[in-house]
């Protein structure tokens, strides 16, 4: 274990991914934390792509990482816009109240 291998990065990205998933499951009130957990999950995917690209000496992984970054930025913008109009209409961002469309 004296040199850095792909396994280190794979396990790290797995742990970060599972932390993000657990944030999604545990957090049941705050909608903005859900968006942050999605960002963490995308970060884990990025770590996996970039480290695989470096250790396999193939540049395509880093290009895909840039595309993931683009989509993540677009997703954050749209999600926060939805959050802002939801807050403007309801005055709160409690996600347990969102199911009012059913009534």
């Amino acid at each position: 274990m004296t040199s850095l291998t792909y396994n280190h990065f794979f396990i790290l990205s797995l742990i970060v991914f599972i932390i993000g998933c657990f944030g999604l499951f545990l957090n049941r009130r705050n909608m903005i934390l859900i968006l942050m957990c999605i960002e963490i999950i995308l970060l884990a995917a990025n770590i996996n792509f970039v480290s695989a690209s470096v250790f396999l000496n193939d540049i395509n992984g880093q290009v895909f990482s840039i595309f993931i970054l683009t989509i993540a930025a677009a997703e954050a913008a749209i999600g926060l816009a939805i959050l802002v109009i939801y807050f403007r209409n309801k005055g709160e961002i409690d996600i347990t109240q969102i199911n009012q469309l059913k009534d």
Binding site: T70, A73, A77, A81, V84
Partner: peptide, 16 residues
């Protein structure tokens, strides 16, 4: 991806 960013920008402006 540039078009996706443009759509996200327009969508965010239209929504808010």
């Amino acid at each position: 991806s540039g078009i996706v960013l443009l759509l996200a920008m327009i969508g965010a402006i239209v929504l808010t």
